[in-house]
């Protein structure tokens, strides 16, 4: 997408400069042809291709890039001014943490974003995707960390004076560590 944009930009600017600076440039092509070539023939296929590729890609991301067989782990993320609280609805009596989200690496996570006050937005830049937590709604997003590690997360919808400080951390754990974590075995540091 970046290179395509660069090519189009160079094309349009090049044509502009050539048309102004070189007196004979482009005069052999009729005006109607200029418009049809540049205004229809050029953008229509590009845009159509891009749009339909994006539909397919969006569908893929929605399904969380998993086959149906692979089980999805649900995480409830509740935003409030100005922190996130994470819990695991499928694990009764499971841990509840503030501003730290533990997830198993290599497994698809479904974030259920909710809010107790104003609109927040759950975003972990390196794990992709973003979902708004709108009061009165619960919206869902699937993410996945392939490698264990720590990933920074941030609120990306302006939510008042504490917005800039509303950061959290995602800790992707190995399967065993995560099992320990759910049963309270993993110590919080």
């Amino acid at each position: 997408m970046l290179w395509g944009s660069f090519a189009l930009f160079t094309l349009v600017l090049g044509l502009f400069l050539a048309a102004v600076l070189a007196p004979r440039f482009g005069r052999g092509v009729s005006q109607a042809r200029w418009i049809i070539l540049g205004g229809l023939i050029l953008p229509v296929p590009v845009l159509a291709g891009l749009t339909f590729y994006a539909f397919a890609q969006g569908e893929f991301l929605l399904k969380g890039a998993v086959s149906e067989a692979n089980e999805v782990l649900e995480v409830r993320a509740i935003g409030r001014m100005w922190q996130w609280q994470f819990s695991y609805p499928s694990v009764s009596g499971g841990p509840v943490h503030t501003d730290i989200l533990h997830i198993p690496a290599g497994r698809t996570i479904e974030i259920i974003a909710e809010s107790e006050d104003v609109i927040h937005s759950f975003w972990v830049p390196r794990l992709g995707g973003k979902i708004d937590a709108v009061p009165g709604h619960s919206s869902r997003l699937r993410i996945r960390a392939d490698q264990p590690g720590r990933y920074g997360g941030i609120c990306s919808e302006y939510c008042g004076t504490g917005h800039a400080g509303m950061q959290f951390e995602v800790r992707a754990l190995g399967q065993d560590d995560f099992r320990d974590f759910l049963t309270g075995g993993l110590r919080h540091d």
């Binding site: 159509a48 749009t51 339909f52 539909f55 969006g58 569908e59 929605l62 919206s139 869902r140």
Partner: peptide, 14 residues
């Protein structure tokens, strides 16, 4: 172009 999506895209929230 606009409504082609109704043929196969996900219809409702998950």
């Amino acid at each position: 172009f606009c409504f082609a999506g109704v043929f196969w895209l996900t219809l409702c929230p998950l």
